[in-house]
Design a protein around this nucleic acid. Structure first.
Lengths: 213, 213
DNA sequence: TAGATTGTTAATCGATTAACAATC
DNA sequence: TAGATTGTTAATCGATTAACAATC
């Protein structure tokens, strides 16, 4: 775990949460060891690929034996940065923002949503679950005071870039973007896009293809 | 547009909705022509890549001129299968399912959400916007009668596979999966995963990396 | 020890980029 | 026509798969 991490390709990084999830499931089912072959079959990958992926970060297995599930899970947990806490806020208290707020911690004890922000006076002051909806005008102060490190963006497309600028100005370096829009941010800000609109079009693409055969 | 479509790599297919979105935006701004270079700069790709991508499907440009925005947009619209209608249902009327239902058509006039399904008697019979929540027990009949082609899955992780089996049994061939779980489906069913939980972990990965430098 | 499986290097495959002739 | 830009082939780069020596 050093800054060489940034040299690991995004392709590999995107597989890490999957490994983590499968290993958590295995641990819950009290599986103690697993070979790269077994894990590959489970996940739909190849054993080679798994061994290559893991070796970007270090050697976590034991020759002739395989991988200890809990040990490997904990290692990947650390690689994913989950050994420290992340306070996050949801920007945009619409339907999707409120749904995400109910996710609560995304199943990860170290990720916490502490507030939502909106500009609608009818929403400001209310709560979703136990998460308060605050005035976007107070965004900067709140981020600084609370040490927020992640913003989850769920506003209408039309104001997506504007609110992104607000988020960037606050010093936040990580954005989970749920708006179907590519955001402009400086190089030191990481944006991860979740584009439901794009995703449904890959479904229609394949459905249409099938109907033509 | 023939069954050779299925030979186009998933990497290219995933870029098609992006092209479509950018071309729609350009058309709205009344831009009439665009070169692969201009579009590449706009989208953060290379001109070569765009020309390669498009040539999987045909030659839509004009040498020495570029691409006519509306013409290319319409071509990609057809490639994405958006020239026919898709009726879809949301399975799971929780917060996320209700948020998606409010998306309405995903901005595409040919995609329609016609119903939601749940097993909670407190939800069945109610409406979200103008979309009725129906009893999951009626799923099969409804799908057949209404000619549903897409299911949007947003149920708790624990029952994700069970409901997937219900969906597959109904004959639906396209699933947009919002559950953080890999689904088992037959080869002829297309699943597109939107995994918000995995996505936030790629954010923590990069944030943690930055804090170590 | 023998068998199993990793860690790692080498080979292959696929995707991106570069180059340029065709042509509008 | 001359300039521009595509369509397409060839070169490069990166990711996946195969192979196998190391070793538990």
């Amino acid at each position: 775990m050093n800054s060489a991490k940034s040299e690991v390709s995004i392709t590999v990084v995107r597989r890490l949460p999957k490994y983590y999830q499968y290993l958590k499931d295995l641990e819950m089912r009290e599986v103690e060891k697993i070979s790269s072959k077994q894990l590959a079959d489970l996940m739909g990958l190849t054993a080679s690929q798994i061994r290559q992926d893991l070796n970007f970060f270090g050697a976590y297995g034991q020759q002739g034996y395989g991988y200890r599930v809990t040990e490997l899970k904990d290692a990947i947990r650390n690689i994913l940065g989950l050994s420290r806490k992340y306070k996050s806020v949801v920007v945009g208290a619409g339907n999707l923002g409120r749904a995400i707020s109910n996710y609560e911690r995304f199943g990860h004890e170290n990720i916490e949503i502490v507030a939502m922000f909106d500009q609608d006076p009818n929403k400001i002051g209310k709560e979703v679950g136990s998460i308060p909806i605050k005035d976007i005008a107070e965004f900067n102060d709140f981020v600084e005071k609370e040490g927020i490190s992640i913003a989850i963006l769920s506003v209408p497309r039309e104001v997506g870039q504007k609110l992104t600028d607000t988020i960037v100005a606050s010093g936040i370096k990580g954005i989970l973007n749920l708006v179907p829009l590519d955001l402009n941010v400086p190089d030191d800000v990481k944006v991860e896009n979740v584009n439901i609109t794009d995703s449904i079009l890959t479904v229609t693409y394949y459905l249409d293809d099938m109907s033509e055969k």
